[in-house]
Amino acid sequence: MKEINPKIDRTKKVIEITGLKKAFDDFEVLKGVDLELYKGENLVVLGRSGTGKSVLIKIISGLLKPDEGRVNVLGEEVDRLSPKELDALRLKIGFSFQNSALYDSMTVKENLEFPLIRHSKELTEKDRDRIIRFVLEAVGLSQAMNQMPSELSGGQRKRIGIARTLILKPEIMLYDEPTAGLDPITSIEINKLINEVQRRFNTSSIIITHDLTCAKAVGDRVVMLLDGQFQRQGTFEEVFDTDDERVKAFHNYNFIE
């Protein structure tokens, strides 16, 4: 069980979403979502597959456009920004993809260099090397520098994916199913890493998952996405302290499997 981060600043909202709706053709995925993320907080979004969790963070990072509602990230309305302004905002958001999304054709080092070369042009090669070493050490994979992504295990790929987002010092981290497809021990290591990132880099994070162990380990606050809306929120215990069959089913299913 996670100790709630004492550094959470409940007066500062880094993300504020109200009345968010999103449909694909006739299929409504998000039906009015309200959410706020406070500075320094780890917010876990729980939900079954296909409930629109990924859609939610893709809207936050501007990959998808909302149909209705306000999406405010770091004081900016995401869907109203020009491409340039959106890019500037995106540099403050780290996005860890479900399958890590490492660039297959590049080595680990080139993967990490890719954002640096483009966005920190003032850095010399030596500076870049130093930063790369630093983030690799932060995710505990210093030895992987010259390997290709295909040579890494799932857990290692996840770490490199997280390192690649940390390299631009984001204020917000979005994790899409960080433990999906990993064995329990590796999952626990990734959970620890998420907490360490929160502490060391002072980030506010949204962690999307259907893994309750993960939710328990990393969440300062948990919300549950059911039927396109957030039905429950609070600490992990508070969320599951209910008679709602759907919530109970989710809990039981997770611990049987």
Partner: peptide, 20 residues
């Protein structure tokens, strides 16, 4: 095939969210 697999494994999205 190359761009297709980059799309499927979200590498194109990853590029976009890293502001490239």
């Amino acid at each position: 095939a190359e761009l297709g697999s980059m799309r499927v494994t979200e590498q194109i999205d990853a590029m976009e969210v890293s502001a490239t």
